[in-house]
Design a protein around this nucleic acid. Sequence first.
DNA 1: ACCTTTTCCTAAATCGGTTTCTTGACAGCA
DNA 2: TGCTGTCAAGAAACCGATTTAGGAAAAGGT
Lengths: 340, 340
Amino acid sequence: MAVTLKDIAKKVGVHPSTVSRVLSGKYDNFNVSEETRKLIFETVKKFNYAPNEMARNLRLQKTQTIGLIIPDILNPFYAGMARSLGIECEKKDYSFIICNTDEIQEKEINFIQMLKRRRVEGLVITPVQESKDHFKELIEENFPFVLASRYFDDFETNAVVTDDYNDVFKAVEYLIKLGHNRIGLIRGRKASSAIQDREKGYKGALAKYNMQIDQDLIVGNGCTIEGGYKATKEILNLPERPTALLVSANVIVVGALEAIFEAGLSVPDDVSVVGFTNMKSTPYLSYPLTSISQPIGQLGKRAFDLLFQHIQSPDEQKYKKIILPSKFSVGKSTQKALGS
Amino acid sequence: MAVTLKDIAKKVGVHPSTVSRVLSGKYDNFNVSEETRKLIFETVKKFNYAPNEMARNLRLQKTQTIGLIIPDILNPFYAGMARSLGIECEKKDYSFIICNTDEIQEKEINFIQMLKRRRVEGLVITPVQESKDHFKELIEENFPFVLASRYFDDFETNAVVTDDYNDVFKAVEYLIKLGHNRIGLIRGRKASSAIQDREKGYKGALAKYNMQIDQDLIVGNGCTIEGGYKATKEILNLPERPTALLVSANVIVVGALEAIFEAGLSVPDDVSVVGFTNMKSTPYLSYPLTSISQPIGQLGKRAFDLLFQHIQSPDEQKYKKIILPSKFSVGKSTQKALGS
DNA sequence: ACCTTTTCCTAAATCGGTTTCTTGACAGCA
DNA sequence: TGCTGTCAAGAAACCGATTTAGGAAAAGGT
């Protein structure tokens, strides 16, 4: 099969350890004659030798690999995270293995097991958050991992999240100042801490302006187009329709808009809409959506940085939670409420 | 650190090989007493032992890992491929490592080297197609790989592609039958075989109806929103504007629509548009785009199947090129040409 | 001429498993 | 008693690298 270090040693007529020392470069100009070194390099090139990383890794007790566990790579949010994580990985000669949970808790647990067997050096995880004991185990073992975009509030971990509470608070405040007093919240997956924080931000903003919280205006659970469609349809059928909607997760805005247009309503004339997205354009709209733009690239980058730090110095580990602010960008999907 | 097989053996008081034999299950009810087996299983559970796959893989000469080299995971087309590849991998206990080339030839070559050092068992690649000698080398070595969505026409490889020529041929034919006689082609990356085939399909359809091929109507090179915008702007500024556009790659349709609306034109009244997409909705449009829907999931699945087959029986390898038809779905972005 | 120091390289252990070969104990049988 | 056969488990080689310790030969010093 593939050429091994032994093969090279035999060809050159030296001991494998000599070849290894020369190739590692650690003993450059030292302990090995110029002549031998040259011959080894030539032979390596000639036979196109490439070290077996499996063997190397076993010996060196490392894999240069991390695991990325996310709900779904088809969601541009996670694809973006994966992309920037990939860029950081490349810089440090790491590779990463992607696993999609589809928000199924069991899958997450199995993936973690699998990746540990493969001896990945760390994990970046957007947790399903239906159970959490397995993370406590990871902490006990001091296994490096970073939560991305979600976190647990009852124990410390490394985490990189967006400032969901304040991001939504500001967006809702903006809607209130436009005169909206019936603002609907189309929620994402309730189990997600991010979604919960967004709901809190929504309620916090209403509270600040002494507005009543109407549970009928808080609908939806799940992060699919279909889910967004149904939830929006529901909220639009209320006797007293909301005049503005905050759609608290990226892809569901598509379903929301679909429902709005199907109901014969127009944006922003009948309903103002604020979404979560980092795209310039949105389906159904020929103008920019007013939206909370999350720093997706930063999420991936910072998660890697944190993870790498833990991997490099496992002993002096102190858990950090990094909170990144989003950018609120006003588009044309929001306007003053009628009569204000 | 982690518990090893040796540790388990020591705890139980048997030789490591015994533990291995019990855990492998290959010698079930044979050669090992019920008592010992039970004790071993208990100890494994107690210490939460999980085999070191690095060591296993080294011994067994396999990694259960494949590499996926694509232009960009942010492009939903490749994300879709990655997703379905992931599903197939999971079924067979494989993992995969994603590498994004950004269509840079050098990166592709480096990634292949890196993945080979890591001893991945095979590769699924959407090649940059600016050079191809490295693929010939892979073939010489009988290294398992499958090209996805693009292929080389001057040598045989495993490949899974869409039926680009015919897909576009039919779409253009459809436009012709609607009475359009100035049909523009917004191209993707020219180096891509898929894009070339689409251009051929476009020309083939025009030829069939004895329509002249106007090079001014064939514009663009690259697969970015920005590129689509510029190319479309260019084509719309022609003295005699096209009445229909075929946008031959998925994401550039966004740039194309942007340019169209910026020019104050409307779809489909002023310009009919056919795109490549598998999404229900399209930015800028509140109605469905007429489009060529590629079987993205199938692409990933079939690529894995082909690759797996090669990995399983490397000797009886016969290269296969699988061509998958797309679905042409008529939306509301196309209509009869004026005056026809 | 003898001892020390360099120079250059080999030997062998190691990482953590798998697998083939071997062995020891005991039962069955003549 | 002695031979064969079976059952349970141990010993050791192996996968392909790295690394520590050691050792032979040449060079240098007095």
